[in-house]
Design a protein around this nucleic acid. Structure first.
Lengths: 124, 124, 124, 124
DNA sequence: GTGGTCTAGACCACA
DNA sequence: GTGGTCTAGACCACA
């Protein structure tokens, strides 16, 4: 369920976090659903269990998942998680677009990109 | 001419690179124009000359500037730099937007962000 | 595995680059093989880790090796590296010879040098 | 008579030295022939007179030229200059070729390069 | 352990 | 003055 890019600059534990969050945001992971075990995911991905631990710990710290000793890790029950993640993503996008204005990007270009994006989507 | 964010996790030398590129892209820095010296920029920004050197070295390796020991560093002569940078930025944006679709971002939301962005711009 | 010439005016980090490339070109270093760590090589060569880092960083920028923070540096997977390096070297030689023609170097002299070179080789 | 490459990594004063030597080696500059004045060459090349001075000083130190205060600089009378330069160049070539053997360059490839070089020459 | 960033500061060649 | 190399050493995140 997780696809790692070992050579990427993005740390592995971050990649795990991002993908778990994306799956929560899009509904692929639902409330109280159990996540793969630390050891099993580590084996699946061919990485160190500590790395998975680190990802889960951060997800738990931020309230997206909860862990029960001896049972495993589960998606948190907070209704708003998907919405919250959605909103955070929008903020991220806004910031990223704002930072690219100094490069001379025009409104028309951005609108064209957005249109193209969803045209591709529809045809898929 | 360069504004650093010391708290950001983006390395300082990368921030310098990005801002120099932005200034080339938007025409603020022109062909063959001399850049601030390694030492003088370091003093201005309150950082170590090596850090500026690292930024300049990478900009030179990528062909955006050229350095002549004993004379200084200058914006490269490639006519296309601004256009190329502009296009690269658009590709970056496209990729970044595509990667946020799994979060359930809608077309309307993106269009709204773009509109808002340029409304702010105009009023400035 | 690396032999430095401390008195040469060729920078140390360049010497490292050249020798790593030569070892890739001749097959001594193979795909995905791990390179010595930045620190261990620095100690072996009696130089500063930063100098090794500089060499590795440039090798990575040029696609010959890849580094994963926390794991190490490895020879890149590009099949063609050896051939490409080989061809580049030939181009270099051709250019260097062409530039020495103005000195009145004759074909016979060059042929003699080449013959001598491989006669020595064989006897080794 | 001198063609500079301002952006080259080779220092300007070295470029001057190399080109003067090449011209002595190939007979373009003859014994006791007067070299361009320091100032006039500096103006021609658009560089600092000190840089030309440095080149001439090194040429004089190595015995290739001599200077007479108030008159100018002249090609030295040593008969052997051209031969000596010729021999030095051959040594350089030998060394450079030797250093490229680790890249897996074969005798056949070198012979082919030499042949090609003089075939082009002839046709010119 | 690994690589990556950064400082402080020396020293060099070049213009 | 300029850029370029290098040392010594700290500190960080990651595996």
């Amino acid at each position: 369920m997780i696809a790692l890019n070992q050579t990427s600059r993005t740390p592995i534990y971050q990649q795990i976090i991002q993908q778990v969050l994306a799956q929560i945001a899009c509904g692929l992971l639902r409330q109280n659903q159990q996540l793969p075990g630390v050891r099993s995911m580590a084996i699946d991905l061919g990485i160190n269990p500590n790395t998975v631990m680190k990802a889960y710990a951060e997800l738990e710290r931020d309230g997206y998942i909860y862990s029960i000793a001896g049972k495993g890790s589960f998606v948190a029950e907070t209704e708003q998680s998907p919405n919250l993640l959605h909103r955070k993503k929008l903020d991220e996008i806004k910031e990223s677009l704002a930072s690219s204005l100094p490069y001379g990007v025009t409104k028309e270009e951005l609108l064209a990109i957005v249109e193209a994006l969803y045209r591709e989507e529809e045809s898929v």
